[in-house]
Every structure is written in structure tokens, then in C-alpha cells.
Design a protein around this nucleic acid. Sequence first.
DNA 1: ATTCGATTGAGAACTTTTTCACTTACAGCA
DNA 2: TGCTGTAAGTGAAAAAGTTCTCAATCGAAT
Lengths: 227, 227
Amino acid sequence: MKADKISELTTNRMSVYLRCLNELAAEGAKTVSSDKLAKRFHLNSAQIRKDLAYFGEFGVRGVGYYVNELRNHLTKILGLNNKHCVAIIGAGRLGTALTDYYGFSQTNFTVAALFDADKSKIGQKVGEVEIFDIKDFADVAKKDKIDVAVIAVPAQFAQNVLEQVAEAGIKAVMNFAPTPLKTKSDVKLKTIDLTTSLESLSYFLAQPIVTNGKDVKPNSAKRRIKK
Amino acid sequence: MKADKISELTTNRMSVYLRCLNELAAEGAKTVSSDKLAKRFHLNSAQIRKDLAYFGEFGVRGVGYYVNELRNHLTKILGLNNKHCVAIIGAGRLGTALTDYYGFSQTNFTVAALFDADKSKIGQKVGEVEIFDIKDFADVAKKDKIDVAVIAVPAQFAQNVLEQVAEAGIKAVMNFAPTPLKTKSDVKLKTIDLTTSLESLSYFLAQPIVTNGKDVKPNSAKRRIKK
DNA sequence: ATTCGATTGAGAACTTTTTCACTTACAGCA
DNA sequence: TGCTGTAAGTGAAAAAGTTCTCAATCGAAT
């Protein structure tokens, strides 16, 4: 198949598959079928096959996928065979929490540096990771071979930080600031907006829960009139 | 219009619109058009009108939307006119960071309690927020009128925590544990998987950047051909 | 009043994503 | 060697989501 444009929905799932394959490998499983995988995360097996098919033919008909082999493929596809160095900009609560979070992680990401504009923080350490002046970003990024940036600064500074980071040649940015950012097309930006997530959840709280078109509440006839 | 099933993509955007309206209101804007809004976050104006149309007719032709009026509507729709009390389960780095994050927040969410299984943490405080024993979740949740739970525990405990939380009658759960969770259909679960986000980003790093099916390395003429 | 520009609301068209259903291929066994 | 059962790969259909287009309608200017 080998399509030339892979959607983010697919790459997200690839990461999930890989995690699952790592678990399966640890459990000593030799093979796994798309159907077994699908059941692990309440997903359609055709979807898994289709996702994988974008990248090649990894399975064996009648058998399934060899766990180790597929794992190696996915690791390569996701670029996790190479080490990645992450810089976190913003040494507040969130930034420092993420420093540990990714530091712990079994994946191939290392938080190499923290950055902040607050003079009083600069030079301090969070675990093993030193806090640098954001002004020195380009230099430090180059020296430490940083290739991923995480923006964890207040919304009003985010655009500026993004530009500095892009200027320094970083091509992958994860943004936690709840604000829309403009970026050049060769920089991949992924925004995680916690406020939006929470508010969106609140919406579902506010609504009566509906299952199969009918209300689940005891004695309310019809809320949510169709059409 | 008033459709009966609103997608999460729409509710996420509604939250974004609301944030923007709050800013506009602060700037003193009286009205705003879908086109102006759209430009703020590189979005199509038809999309905004369609999103809003799910919930009613809020605009005035030839004028746009009255900022304050629309803001009030969105606030009600998202259920943000009521206070929400949030419990965070897992008083590790991430959990404590989120405690502050949402605590700061200007929105109508208050972190009312933290929970952990680690005896040494129980009784301590993070800012104003006390850490309770997870075993007491149901009691504390009832007393403090908690209606949203955030799961920030290691993956292997997440399913168990979710069940306890659901058992206590919580209907909205935000999950940071990188693992698929099973839940009853009347509990709204939203998972934010930071590892997946990062790995997915890594994929785009690993790939040559492609625009129209061709590689965009140094001296390729046209980027992004229309259509 | 009437015209004009602006902007919504909504159906149609289009695009993307997911699911279905079927064909092909391999492994194990008689 | 040929059957049989299982499961990948895949084109087509369905569903979901986005964008286009345009009639309807409002405010303002003439």
C-alpha cells in the first residue's frame, strides 16, 4: 500500500500498538493477530491491518504478526531506534513534572535541558536536568543535540518561544500552552490543551447521557429530540 | 439544527471559541463574525457556524455574533456556569502539577482533593489541597461534591482506580495513564496519552517532510500546491 | 423606501476515516 | 499432496467530518 501521507490518527495508534507489542514480548508471546490486538483496545481489527499496511506487509496470513518482528518495524517507523533529546521550556510546575515524566519513561526520549526566563531559576537543577536561560536556547540546543521541544510556558509567551525554538532548527514541538500558535510548515507542532480537555469533559457532564438514542435517566421521556 | 449527538471534536472547539470570546469581551469587542473567529485559529468559518448551529441560532445575519451573548450561551452549553469539583488521584509529580495547573485556572474548576495509596503522603497538603487515602475516595467525594476525577497514577493501577471512581458515582474522568481503560457507558472517559503524543511527534521527525507527495529537501521548487 | 454590503444558516459536495466483506495465502494435519 | 481453518491484505461501502456555495436577512447609507 504505502501511502504518502499518514494521518496523525494513524501515528498515534502506531504508538499504542508498539506499547502493546512491548508488553506482549515481555509476556513471551511469539505471534499476535490483528483481532487479538484490536480487542486489547476496543478497536476494529481492520483498522489495525490498514494502519500497518500503510508501511508495509508485516503479517503472515493464517498466522498473524510475529511480535518481535513487528515491534522492530514499528520502532523504526516511529523513529524510536534513535535517541531523542528533549528540551522543556518553562520550569514551572508542569515543566518540572514533565521532566520527570519523560525522564522515567522507558522510551527513547531524554530530557536534556530545561529553560526559563526567570533568573532565579537559572542554574538550578530538576533531578539531573539543569535549567538554562531561554536566551541561550540555540547554543544549548546545538550542544546537546536537542531535537524536540516542549512548550510549558504561560499562553502569552508561547508564540515567542515557538519562534525562538523554530529559529534554532527544532522540527518537532509539543505545546501545552492553551493558545493557537502559528508555525512554519516544516515544524511539526502538536498542542495538548488541558483546559479544553477538561471543559469538553464538562460538556458531557452537563448533558443527559444517551446510549442508544434513548435517555438513560429513569423517568424522563424525551430529552434530545431527534433532528 | 440541534443534532442529537455532538462529537468531541466539536466540543473541544467550543471550549476554544469560549476562550476566545472571553478575550474579545475583555478587549471590549461587541460583536464578532465567524470569519474573524476563524482567522484567530486558522480554521474555516463554515466550521464555526456549523459547530454553533448544533446548539441554536446565536448569530445575526449581516452582523455576526454578539460577544457577550454568545459567551453566555457557550458557558451554559459547556456546563461552566456551575462550579465543578475535581479530584486528582495520584499525588506524584504529574498529579501535584495538575493540582496547581487547574487550581490557577480561571475556569470553574476547583481541585478539591488529592488521593494516593502511599501512606507517607496521606494527610499532607499540596497548596491548599489535602492528600487523602484512596480507600476513602467514595466518602470524600461525596462530602466534597466531587464530580470530575483525574487519574494520574501509574498505568498498572489505572483500571482499578477507574473502577473505584465509577463506583463512587463519578461520571467524568480524565486519564493520564498510558493504557486503554474499560468503562461503563455512562462514564465519560477522556485519555490524554503523553507518551503517544511524543512518539507520534517522533514519527514526523523520522520522516522526510512531504508536502505534495514529493520530498521537500533543499532545492525543491514548489511547496504545497493547491488541491 | 430602496439599495448595498456583510454575514449567518443550511443543504450539497467533498474529504477523510472507519468498517465491511471478500480474496488470497500460509500452517498444520490427514 | 491435498484439505481445512485461520488471518492478512484490500477494494468498496459507510460513516464522520469539513468546506463550498448560496439564499435569506439584517444594518446602514442613500
